[in-house]
């Protein structure tokens, strides 16, 4: 058995290691704390949003080892050892790749007005980066489908797709 946490008592805490936005952190976490709540409540990384807490809106999307997931449906303890990138780390991600300002997708979202209230935006951004990492979506139609896990109630969808296309074309140039 790799780990057997004690009882379901209030003090049950398990030590885990997460690399969050490039920074390695040792964290004690209760087994029932989701990755989303860990980020928002314990680590003050409130950029990642809670929109539904049930995997039905995508506002909580983060990258785990480069793959986009809903952090609301992930227990933090189960991600022990993982690399997490949140919206706060996207610019750093770009900087590690030699870009010195915001991540191109962040710039593109501003330029294309791909948000209004801004609450779904961190999830849309992480999802966009995840989409590009995956490399499956190429056409506008495919981008729309692949971004459908991120609900935007302000209805910025067409601008979001414009922003992603813009960055994908830039990367292809």
């Amino acid at each position: 058995m790799l780990i057997e946490s004690g009882s379901p008592g209030a003090d049950a805490r398990i030590g885990i290691t997460l690399t969050i936005n490039g920074e390695k952190r040792e964290i004690d976490v209760a087994p029932w704390t989701t990755l989303l709540d860990l980020l928002r409540e314990n680590l003050d990384l409130t950029g990642t949003k809670k929109g539904c807490d049930h995997g039905q809106c995508g506002a909580c999307t983060v990258l785990v080892n480069g793959t986009r997931i809903n952090s609301c449906l992930a227990l933090a303890v189960m991600k022990d050892g993982a690399e997490i990138t949140t919206v706060e780390g996207l610019a750093g991600l770009a900087q590690s790749q030699g870009v010195n300002t915001l991540h191109p997708i962040q710039e593109a979202f501003v330029e294309h007005d791909a948000f209004q209230c801004g609450y779904c935006t961190p999830g849309q951004l992480c999802s966009s980066v995840g989409l590009m990492n995956e490399g499956h979506a190429k056409t506008r139609e495919e981008i729309r489908e692949a971004m459908s896990g991120n609900i935007c109630r302000c209805g910025a969808y067409t601008n979001i797709v414009d922003a992603i296309e813009d960055v994908m074309q830039g990367a292809a140039r």
Binding site: M1, L2, I3, E4, S5, G6, S7, P8, G9, A10, A12, I14, P31, W32, L75, V77, M78, D80
Partner: peptide, 8 residues
């Protein structure tokens, strides 16, 4: 709810 966590 609260639970035991076991990583197998």
């Amino acid at each position: 709810n609260r639970f035991d966590y076991v990583r197998a």
